[in-house]
């Protein structure tokens, strides 16, 4: 069993959603996480990352504030899961409601283990 981080990427982090839309997303996200947890494979719900006050620090200490003019994608959050294979982790990622937004993506990354020498 390996550990994977599923990273949610939004194409447009500045998009404003209505409270009703937020409510629906919330429910879908909870159903998605609940489904992984019901398999005993949810490690960590991670943290949602707020888009408010987000900024990017570049080479030479140049600070760019949102709304991310030059950046194509922003990270919206991540969760950690256990999976037998990367395929299984990918299956988990496919269920994430973030993917309903066109242009949004999920990045699947295996947690590197430092084997004792």
């Amino acid at each position: 069993m390996e550990e994977y981080v599923l990273i949610m990427r939004h194409e447009n982090g500045a998009a404003v959603a209505s409270p009703e839309q937020m409510q629906i997303w919330m429910q879908q996200t909870m159903d998605w996480l609940g489904g992984i947890a019901a398999q005993g494979k949810l490690l960590n719900t991670g943290n949602g990352l707020s888009f408010d006050d987000a900024c990017v620090v570049g080479h030479g200490g140049v600070v760019t504030n949102g709304p991310f003019g030059e950046i194509k994608e922003t990270i919206g959050g991540y969760v950690m899961v256990k999976a037998d294979s990367v395929d299984e982790a990918v299956e988990f990622a496919k269920g994430c409601p973030v993917l309903q937004g066109p242009g949004n993506t999920m990045e699947v990354r295996k947690v590197a283990k430092h084997e004792p020498k």
């Binding site: 909870m30 019901a38 949810l42 719900t45």
Partner: peptide
């Protein structure tokens, strides 16, 4: 729907087989 959400939260907090079964029923 409320029951399903409570089971989601319960499972996220702590996995148990019985909660997983009940969640599926609520689902």
């Amino acid at each position: 729907n409320t029951v399903l959400q409570l089971y989601n939260q319960l499972l996220i907090l702590e996995y148990s087989p019985i909660a997983a079964l009940n969640r599926t029923f609520a689902f």
